[in-house]
Design a binder for these strands. Structure first.
Length: 573
RNA sequence: CGGGGUGUAGCGCAGCCUGGUUAGCGCGCGUGCCUUGGGAGCACGAGGCCGCCGGUUCAAAUCCGGCCACCCCGACCA
């Protein structure tokens, strides 16, 4: 393509309303423009990158046996009432009425539509397994859209759904998608990890998130430095530490006045003890009743773990009134002593090892020191209820765990029979028995993947696209406008690159070299072929790598080959 | 939804507190000259419902009230 005729409105300055780097750079490179909050137009350059991701996804889905379909974006309320999600989905689901007063919504996801489609036309186990996917715009009316394409309301998503006749086959479908996703993100040239995610009531390892590693990620990943184990923070297991003997001599519980000291920092500072010698007592309410959870003062409670342990669907920190009713003391002074029998007490494994700890006194301005678990109180159960920390032990291999920030770009999830039961998607098995299909769902945030690639690959000059996602793989930059030989050579090089099936752009604008170089860098084109008088005198052109900034002189006749080689050997550190 | 902030030319901003000529600056844009290896220079020029509605005033970008939009923090979130 010729740059002179293209709409690539680059900007010198950062737009004021962009915060994260991918958002700033996509706006500056002329890839996207905002229409309204969380809704973006794709300009030619942005669309080309989006299409690159789509194409990779398409190829990998097709080659793993999935079939592409295209489902409606406008959906009738009936389907959502049937699945039960019309009531529970909340305001993220954009609802409206058509001219006949019919309730509709914009599809935030397509379980209902796909299940409806399949149940109408699939009756026999002979038609299974079936794996259908689409690449389409989704709309989720996010409470707070932010960070450009990272969390938009309207975004491009690949969503796929598998239908199987047996658990075994459903697992096969899941694994096939898991492998396809690994290939997709590898081909995109991204540094990523597939991490175990919370799968709620289904349990097991049937939910994986694909995380692009980037400092600006909203999610925290816990990964082993030795083995392959990686999980998101909600899910990351923390194994019970080996039992350690308690000292012979233990202090006696002593009541102390701690006026106005309700936080861990205040109490530990006031009593001159370390936060890890405090026991934090959190009162929670859930649909399974109230519960008290104990963790060490330095640890964070993991509500998802508690929720799963209780088999609850809702859980939250109790309000001050509930705390006073349950413990007799105000918020900030709860402790395990005297709570036994009143409320179920769960304690993190690490609490069992503590001795001479400080706990709340269940009374205003009172704490109790020298409390030792299992002597002064006994929890109903010890378990894994805290968030993992840097340096924790790996639950698989005993290695050391470390934390990363990540951007979720993909999610594979075993759905089981949740939708097939609710919506009656059944088939006849070999024995002629009617059974619900077993489903899985698989998503890739296509537009988010482009943004994540930029978060991971940029420098002070702009984007550094991996060739697989770059809007163009190479840009031909003639410099020295007055020289017809330069222009003619640049044209010839440009045509050579196309002949070699390289996605090439030629900067044929009447601009000074500096402007062309800056724009090429900003757009993140991986390779720049500079055609200038000096090198041309020797029959050569310059080939520059956007990432390494290294330049080599290449014979005119060998330039296409050199670019090909560069693309093939591209590495992201 | 709670808290904070911002709306002035395509982009980035000043002016507002302390009301008063034709509302400024940088970038970008157009024309001409000049220049051509890292966002050149000079000259001329186009471009503004000062977010919207109302109020105060002889007079409002500026003061007051309401509304809207957008951004950030939090809560929320498959």
């Amino acid at each position: 393509m010729r740059m002179s005729g293209m709409l690539i409105p680059t900007l010198k300055e950062d737009p004021a309303d962009a915060e994260v780097i991918s958002h700033k750079l996509m706006l500056r490179a002329g890839m996207i423009r905002k229409l309204t909050s969380g809704v973006y137009s794709f300009l030619p350059l942005g669309l080309r990158s989006l299409r690159k991701v789509e194409q990779i996804v398409r190829e990998e889905m097709d080659s793993s046996g999935a079939q592409e379909v295209f489902l409606p974006m406008v959906q009738p309320s009936e389907l959502w009432l049937e699945s039960g999600r019309w009531e529970i989905y909340g305001r993220e689901l954009l609802r409206f009425k058509d001219r006949h007063d019919h309730e509709c919504c914009l599809g935030p996801t397509h379980e209902e539509v796909i299940t409806d489609l399949v149940r109408r036309d699939v009756r026999s186990y002979r038609d299974l397994p079936l794996n259908l996917y689409q690449i389409q715009t989704k709309f989720r009316d996010e409470v707070r859209p932010r960070f450009g394409l990272m969390r938009g309301r309207e975004f491009m998503m690949k969503d796929g759904y598998s239908f199987d006749a047996s658990e075994k086959e459903a697992e096969d479908s899941y694994v096939a998608m898991w492998l396809a996703y690994k290939r997709v993100f590898s081909r995109c040239g991204l540094r990523f990890r597939a991490v175990e995610a919370d799968s709620g009531p289904i349990g097991g390892s049937f939910s994986h998130e694909f995380m692009v590693l980037a400092e600006t990620g909203e999610d925290t990943i816990v990964a082993c430095t030795v083995c392959e184990y990686a999980a998101n923070m909600e899910k990351a297991e923390v194994p019970a530490p080996p039992p350690s003997p308690k000292p012979e001599k233990l202090g006696t519980p002593t009541t102390v006045k701690t006026p106005g000291m309700s936080t861990i920092e205040q109490v530990s500072g006031f009593l001159k003890v370390l936060p890890e010698d405090l026991i934090k007592t959190l009162i929670l309410t859930s649909d399974k009743g109230p519960v008290a959870v104990l963790v060490r003062g330095a640890d964070e409670i993991n509500l998802v773990k508690v929720k799963n342990h209780l088999h609850a669907t809702e859980i939250e920190l109790a309000d001050s009134r509930t705390i006073e009713e349950l413990t007799g003391g105000p918020l900030g002074f709860s402790g395990p002593l005297g709570l036994q029998g009143k409320v179920k007490i769960l304690a993190d494994y690490s609490v069992a090892q503590m001795c001479n700890a400080v706990v709340g006194g269940n009374e205003r301005d009172v704490h109790i020191t020298h409390v030792t678990p299992d002597r002064d109180f006994t929890p109903d159960l010890y378990g894994d209820f805290r968030c993992a920390r840097e340096g924790d032990t790996c639950p698989r291999c005993g290695g050391v765990m470390t934390l990363y920030k990540g951007i979720e770009v993909g999610h594979v999830f075993k759905l089981g029979t949740k939708y097939s039961e609710a919506m009656n998607a059944r088939f006849l098995d070999a024995e002629g028995k009617e059974r619900p299909m077993i489903m899985g769902c698989y998503g890739i945030g296509v537009s988010r993947t482009v943004a994540a690639a930029i978060e991971q690959n940029h420098d002070e000059d702009g984007i550094i696209f991996p060739p697989a996602l770059a809007p163009f793989e190479a840009i031909v930059t003639p410099v020295g406008k007055k020289d017809p030989q330069v222009d003619e050579t640049a044209e010839a090089v440009y045509k050579d690159l196309w002949k070699a099936k390289i996605d090439a752009l030629i900067d044929d604008r009447d601009e000074r070299p500096g402007v062309k170089f800056k724009d090429a860098d900003l757009m993140g084109i991986p390779f720049r072929v500079t055609v200038g008088k000096k090198a041309l005198a020797e029959g050569k052109v310059e080939l520059r790598n956007r990432r390494t900034k290294e330049t080599e002189l290449v014979e005119l006749t060998a330039i296409a080959k050199a670019v090909k080689k560069g693309i093939k050997n591209w590495t992201t550190e």
